[in-house]
Amino acid sequence: MTTTPRSPRLLVLSTVILAVVGGVALLGVPHDQQPAPTTTAPAAPDPSTAAAPPAIPPTVPGPPSPASATPAASTPSALEPLLPPHGEGPAGDRAIQHSLEAAWPADLPAGDERELLTAGRALLRADATGVGRANWPQVFPASDQAVAPAFATAHFRIQAAIARRDGSPGRAVVHLVWAGMDRGGTFTDLRISDWHFTRTTSKKGASTWTPQPRT
Results as ranks from 00 to 15, higher is better:
73 A>R: 14
61 P>N: 05
100 L>F: 11
94 R>Y: 11
78 A>N: 05
119 A>K: 13
93 D>H: 12
108 L>P: 12
94 R>Q: 15
92 G>P: 05
78 A>F: 00
64 P>E: 01
71 P>V: 00
89 G>N: 08
114 R>D: 14
124 L>V: 13
96 I>A: 01
62 G>I: 05
109 P>M: 06
47 P>K: 05
103 A>H: 00
62 G>H: 08
72 A>Q: 06
55 A>D: 08
76 P>Q: 08
38 T>G: 12
41 A>H: 02
127 D>Y: 02
71 P>I: 00
100 L>T: 08
128 A>V: 02
32 D>G: 12
74 S>R: 06
54 P>G: 15
40 T>G: 04
26 L>F: 03
47 P>E: 06
67 A>S: 08
96 I>N: 00
55 A>L: 06
56 I>Q: 07
35 P>F: 02
36 A>R: 15
116 L>P: 13
123 L>H: 05
129 T>E: 09
86 H>C: 00
86 H>Y: 03
129 T>F: 14
41 A>S: 08
66 P>N: 12
98 H>V: 15
108 L>W: 11
123 L>M: 12
48 S>Y: 14
86 H>V: 01
112 D>Q: 13
31 H>G: 06
85 P>Q: 07
104 W>V: 15
106 A>R: 14
58 P>Y: 00
33 Q>F: 03
32 D>W: 14
92 G>H: 09
73 A>V: 14
41 A>T: 13
84 P>I: 05
128 A>L: 00
53 P>K: 11
38 T>P: 03
68 S>L: 02
68 S>P: 11
26 L>Q: 13
31 H>E: 06
108 L>T: 11
33 Q>Y: 02
88 E>W: 11
34 Q>D: 03
89 G>Q: 11
38 T>V: 15
91 A>T: 11
88 E>A: 15
73 A>G: 09
50 A>Q: 08
64 P>N: 00
104 W>Y: 14
62 G>L: 15
86 H>P: 02
129 T>Q: 12
90 P>N: 12
67 A>G: 13
27 L>P: 10
84 P>H: 09
90 P>M: 12
120 G>Y: 08
70 T>M: 01
88 E>Q: 15
115 E>L: 11
54 P>A: 14
30 P>D: 04
115 E>Y: 02
40 T>W: 02
118 T>K: 09
106 A>V: 12
95 A>D: 10
51 A>F: 13
73 A>M: 09
91 A>P: 01
65 S>G: 10
34 Q>P: 00
53 P>V: 05
112 D>Y: 09
130 G>H: 07
50 A>T: 10
94 R>G: 12
